[in-house]
Design a protein around this nucleic acid. Structure first.
Lengths: 297, 297
DNA sequence: CATCCAGTATCAGCAATACTGATGCTCATG
DNA sequence: CATGAGCATCAGTATTGCTGATACTGGATG
């Protein structure tokens, strides 16, 4: 078979596990089958894809990985898209939210939905941006709410792994979070470019990724020595207060963090933006919630 | 096999040909095999994908199509990406251009490249935006030049079917092309929104697609009764002069079209933009040309 | 209403394939 | 140089995927 998705899945698993045998265990194959999958791919593409001992992707393997992961995601997305057509009106609603997208307005909308549909089982989970997109695509979640930074009225730069409809439900000033003792903490506003050389915290799940800032400011910089994994925003605030580095947040949410000053960004024009992501044809409670959230025009 | 690419290819072909037998002919299978492919897909996804007599995609089939085409394109792109690592044709350079991207500057760059590499065989072909992207992804072309309209310094809205590097090589005022006898033809500048209700020509290959205008102007409108297929810009100008409708072009290129007035757009801020598209790791003459074209900073 | 025709579904049979389990080989390690 | 962890290879077998023949179906025709 030519570029069989199974083979691609095996290849990804081998790279992830850095081992043929472990990948085999994870996939429920024998080691022999995995070895043959990789050999078949390498024969098909006429180039080695992984080095053995240690097991690591070659240059060609890295290229293939860049395609294989989105490809497999899209296959799952296609399956989920079609499965959704039959699944009419379940009494469940699953939301995937990035932490910064779980605003009071969203919470109120959920509560309001529960008053009109009292028997509806709603579950909310916070996760990273990529996971949220993936969840909606694969049907793990009915709706996603993601936040990020962008120029006003620009869409968020999200990975495009399939057809999704997106619309913004909130745009608020983007603020820099600094320690309250920071020399710039008292300013009424700040220019982002002046902070490009500062020490930032890269917290891609709990805050706006630095890549968004670079893209919006159209400058380099925004380097970081401190990375913060996980989705807890309070802990991130604590790090900022302790001088671990700077981060950003929507202005309203950024106030009242102990030991932290929030200063809005004046230049460039950049906003904190919350978007709803849903499958192209969403029905049932997900569509209802999306209607509640959609800005009336 | 679960969602075999071959089956997807068969499915796409069946929909395109509106016939199992014709699709079989096109793919080199028997009609029986095609029937079994479709049956297998339908069994796997547990839903009918095409109606028979006449053969047409069901709702689920339409969904699957939305995924299947990009999926198959990406598979080819992955193969091409890896093939490029080994197979460099140093003596050949193939360019795919949208007509509006073939500016004098580009032509001069090609000529300049030929003076430094006199033995280089260069071939230029004009085609639509989608084809150009596809050509670079699948390795049919080494480099693509595409034009379109966008807000200043915004990237062009191109289909994302894989990793490509893109950069702009020209940004020029975008002009509306009107018949010289048109009441607005004498104006020094025009607001795009005032023309949203006008009659436009949709010429996605030869000019900026109306969808770009809608996106850039952030309004509806820009409807058309007249569609113009093909890549010839002169013919399009003739249609405009005859009162067939309006279109747009880069301001410098739009002057001196007989019977046509070119009026720059003042609001919103919108530009005609030419971008170079190339595979992530481009080498040889393609990289040289790309270096010549890249704006020095 | 009977017939025909174009086109899809189904079936049996065969060739190609994709697994498993056993074994061989290779490199890193002490 | 002995060892062992881990990848490659091979033979055997169950499964899959194709072809060619044939049955079936809905629409057109008179």
């Amino acid at each position: 078979m030519l570029m069989d998705p199974q083979q691609l899945r095996t290849f990804v698993s081998v790279v992830d596990h850095r081992s043929f045998s472990l990948a085999a265990r994870a996939l429920g194959y024998t080691q022999s089958a995995v070895s043959q999958h990789i050999a078949a791919l390498e024969a098909d593409l006429d180039t080695p894809l992984v080095t053995r001992r240690p097991v690591a992707p070659t240059e060609a393997g890295v290229r293939l990985l860049e395609h294989a992961r989105p490809l497999l995601l899209r296959l799952d997305a296609a399956r989920a898209d079609i499965a959704r057509l039959r699944q009419v009106h379940p009494g469940r609603l699953t939301l995937a939210c990035t932490p910064g997208a779980l605003t009071p307005a969203v919470a109120h909308a959920v509560v309001r939905l529960r008053t009109t549909s009292p028997r509806l089982a709603v579950s909310v989970r916070t996760c990273g941006r990529g996971e949220a997109v993936e969840a909606v695509l694969t049907g793990t979640a009915d709706l996603a709410l993601v936040d990020g930074a962008a120029a006003p009225s620009d869409p968020l730069p999200l990975p495009d792994a399939g057809p999704l409809t997106a619309f913004a439900i909130a745009q608020e000033p983007l603020a820099v979070l600094l320690p309250a003792t920071h020399p710039l903490a008292g300013r009424p506003a700040l220019r982002l470019a002046d902070l490009a050389a500062a020490r930032w915290i890269e917290a891609p799940d709990a805050a706006v990724p630095l890549s968004h800032l670079r893209a919006a400011a159209q400058t380099d910089g925004f380097g970081h020595q401190l990375a913060y994994a996980g989705g807890d925003m309070r802990g991130l605030g604590t790090l900022v207060a302790a001088g671990g580095g700077l981060t950003t947040a929507a202005l309203p949410a950024a106030r009242h963090v102990p030991g932290v000053a929030a200063v809005p960004i004046s230049v460039p024009r950049i906003v904190h933006r919350v978007e709803v992501l849903q499958p192209r044809s969403s029905t049932g409670p997900a569509a209802e919630l999306s209607d509640i959230l959609r800005p009336s025009q």
